[in-house]
Amino acid sequence: MQEKKQGDSYVERLAEMDSTLKTVRPQVREFDEDLIIRLIETIRVNKGEKLEIQFESGIVMEQTVDYYD
Score class of each variant (00 low, 15 high):
residue 1 M to T: 10
residue 1 M to G: 14
residue 2 Q to P: 02
residue 2 Q to V: 05
residue 3 E to D: 12
residue 4 K to M: 08
residue 4 K to C: 03
residue 5 K to S: 06
residue 5 K to C: 02
residue 5 K to A: 13
residue 6 Q to M: 11
residue 6 Q to F: 10
residue 6 Q to L: 13
residue 6 Q to H: 12
residue 6 Q to I: 07
residue 7 G to Y: 02
residue 7 G to T: 09
residue 7 G to P: 00
residue 7 G to C: 05
residue 8 D to G: 05
residue 8 D to F: 09
residue 8 D to K: 13
residue 9 S to T: 07
residue 9 S to Y: 08
residue 9 S to L: 12
residue 10 Y to C: 08
residue 10 Y to P: 00
residue 10 Y to I: 09
residue 11 V to F: 08
residue 12 E to K: 13
residue 12 E to I: 08
residue 13 R to Q: 14
residue 13 R to N: 12
residue 13 R to A: 15
residue 13 R to Y: 05
residue 13 R to L: 05
residue 14 L to S: 00
residue 14 L to R: 11
residue 14 L to T: 00
residue 15 A to H: 04
residue 15 A to W: 03
residue 15 A to S: 08
residue 15 A to Q: 09
residue 16 E to V: 02
residue 16 E to H: 07
residue 17 M to Q: 13
residue 17 M to A: 14
residue 17 M to D: 02
residue 17 M to H: 01
residue 18 D to N: 08
residue 19 S to R: 13
residue 19 S to V: 02
residue 19 S to T: 08
residue 19 S to G: 02
residue 21 L to E: 06
residue 22 K to Q: 10
residue 22 K to C: 06
residue 23 T to W: 01
residue 23 T to P: 00
residue 23 T to Q: 13
residue 23 T to L: 08
residue 23 T to C: 04
residue 23 T to I: 00
residue 24 V to L: 12
residue 24 V to W: 02
residue 24 V to C: 11
residue 24 V to D: 00
residue 24 V to A: 09
residue 24 V to Y: 10
residue 25 R to D: 15
residue 26 P to H: 05
residue 26 P to D: 08
residue 26 P to E: 05
residue 27 Q to S: 11
residue 27 Q to I: 06
residue 27 Q to L: 07
residue 28 V to E: 14
residue 28 V to Q: 14
residue 28 V to P: 00
residue 29 R to P: 00
residue 29 R to M: 08
residue 29 R to Y: 03
residue 30 E to P: 00
residue 33 E to M: 10
residue 33 E to P: 04
residue 33 E to F: 11
residue 34 D to Q: 13
residue 35 L to C: 04
residue 35 L to I: 05
residue 35 L to W: 01
residue 35 L to P: 01
residue 36 I to M: 11
residue 37 I to F: 07
residue 37 I to N: 13
residue 39 L to G: 10
residue 39 L to P: 09
residue 40 I to Y: 02
residue 41 E to I: 02
residue 42 T to G: 02
residue 42 T to Y: 06
residue 42 T to F: 01
residue 42 T to M: 02
residue 43 I to H: 01
residue 43 I to M: 07
residue 43 I to Q: 05
residue 43 I to G: 07
residue 45 V to T: 12
residue 45 V to P: 01
residue 46 N to Q: 09
residue 47 K to Y: 07
residue 47 K to T: 01
residue 48 G to M: 01
residue 48 G to R: 06
residue 48 G to Y: 04
residue 48 G to S: 07
residue 48 G to W: 06
residue 48 G to H: 03
residue 49 E to V: 15
residue 49 E to R: 15
residue 50 K to G: 00
residue 50 K to Y: 11
residue 50 K to D: 10
residue 50 K to V: 15
residue 51 L to Q: 03
residue 52 E to M: 10
residue 53 I to P: 11
residue 54 Q to N: 03
residue 54 Q to D: 01
residue 54 Q to C: 12
residue 56 E to I: 12
residue 56 E to F: 09
residue 56 E to S: 06
residue 56 E to L: 08
residue 56 E to Y: 05
residue 57 S to L: 03
residue 57 S to D: 08
residue 57 S to V: 04
residue 57 S to W: 03
residue 58 G to K: 07
residue 58 G to E: 04
residue 58 G to S: 04
residue 58 G to M: 07
residue 59 I to P: 00
residue 60 V to L: 06
residue 60 V to R: 11
residue 61 M to G: 00
residue 61 M to D: 02
residue 62 E to M: 11
residue 62 E to S: 15
residue 63 Q to C: 09
residue 63 Q to D: 04
residue 63 Q to N: 05
residue 63 Q to W: 01
residue 64 T to V: 11
residue 66 D to A: 08
residue 67 Y to Q: 15
residue 67 Y to H: 13
residue 67 Y to A: 09
residue 68 Y to F: 07
residue 69 D to G: 11
